[in-house]
Amino acid sequence: MAERSFHVARLPGFATTAIIVFLALYLPIITLVVYSFNASTSLAVWGGFSLDWYAKAWANTQVKDATMRSLIIASFAALISTTVATMAALGTTRRRAFKGQTAIYVMINQPLMVPEIVTAVALMILFGLIKQATGIHGLGYLILAHSAFCIPFAYLPIRARLEGMDLTLETAAADLYATPWQTFRRVTLPLLAPGMIAGAMLAFVISLDDVVITEFVKSGGQDTLPTYMLGQLRRQLTPEINAISTMLLAVTVVLLTAFFLLTRKKD
């Protein structure tokens, strides 16, 4: 053992840094969850254990409506953005490199680069004009907006999956007289499915969490769970917010766990 290879875990202070980082990441979340079981009306003064705030949040029709709306928007946004992202990923990887490819990557990933507030204000103005002209105020605007900013999140895992798949199986299928559609349906799609599911779940979570764009795009009666919570800010916050957050957190954790299980290497 003359010379050991470089390994980050052997760097001085590795354990300390790791512990600090984990504390910074998870301590606030743990506090939030603990105080959701608080019996008092305060966010910070412990008044004993109770499930009252969960019952209260559960009985609150505004919370229920907002939750339903959040789930509907997130489901559609996940579906649409994954479809678009799959097409984009196929178009950008299943062929020889072409001119302007980088420009297309940048365009697809634009929602990751542009500050959310800029997109939000831009969408508010554009949708405002459309709403005035047509008089249509459906959830469609929110679904459209969410689908748009979810595309890069769906696109990245799908593209990663596609880049790991070489063309031999598809070439073989074509050699055996499969039509392009049959090749896609029977060979490419099944191989791609884990990437698509992962992308869809990531998009779902991103849509579920969104505040800024939703706040600016929503019309009357279109509060989602995050914008409902934001609206509570000016008045006294109660542990009801903690209870709602904890439930939202639980949904997110379940989805992210599923994402992890689906994307991890089989071997």
Partner: peptide, 23 residues
């Protein structure tokens, strides 16, 4: 139907943009 906001500025911006559907 109640829709929430958390600041005067957000409310003003949304109403100025038009097409909000509020009364």
């Amino acid at each position: 139907t109640v829709t929430d906001y958390d600041s005067n500025d957000v409310a003003l911006a949304k109403i100025e943009a038009g097409g909000h559907g509020f009364d």
